[in-house]
Design a protein around this nucleic acid. Sequence first.
DNA 1: CCGGTTGTTCAGCG
DNA 2: GCGCTGAACAACCG
Length: 242
Amino acid sequence: MPEGPSIVIIKEELQSFKGKKILQVEGNAKIELALMENKKIKDFKSWGKHFLICFDTFYLRIHLLMFGTYRINERKEADPRLLLKFKNSEFSFYTCSIKLIKGNPAESYDWDADIMSETWSHKKAVKKINSFANEQVCDVLLNQDIFAGVGNIIKNEVLFRTRIHPESVIGNLPRTRLNALVKDARDYSLQFYIWKKAFVLKKNWVIYKKLNCLKCKSKVTRAYCGKTKRLTCYCENCQKIY
DNA sequence: CCGGTTGTTCAGCG
DNA sequence: GCGCTGAACAACCG
């Protein structure tokens, strides 16, 4: 479920609940559920992999982690972490992290760092990346302070699309290559969103979990790269190391 | 059918 | 206090 584009899709699917009054709250989240009863949902927001349910004086921050799921007007068999019931409708979240945070999310996030945001800033991202000169590209792409919403699939695909070896060191990347990387992180995330909505995301993967390189047909290398040690699929032949 | 994983946090250690 | 490692969480897919 959980890379940035998928969170934007959740936000869209829940739009009809905006402004509606919550009649009943259930779930095993370790928060004070009663606080939401008889309150109206002010807004839904997303920042990277965070999904936010906003109320007047607080908001819920939901992170789906690896296995989180949700349902709208239907239930899973498992106990919901959070179930919000309305007059003739409901939605629920499962196996996720939920925090209740006081205040307004507008002030607590760097919105320009969200890869899916209308206000995404390429320039700010480049500036931040330059302070990680000794880090590997595969780690920096997963840094949520720089690329909020980019996950392991987007990382793999972007590195292949830009022909950059995952273990390249930031300080060695020519400026044009760094710009291409940042631009494609944004472009591919928007593409991921379109493909995901059309249920054709997986079939459009070009390197992630592929056996052979689509371009040169050589065997795709699989390794747990960088400090993050996340599965990385890449082509030794087509992706240049800097 | 069982191992791996679209993710993050935290304890424990040197 | 730092960086690093491993555990914990927990469910679905191939």
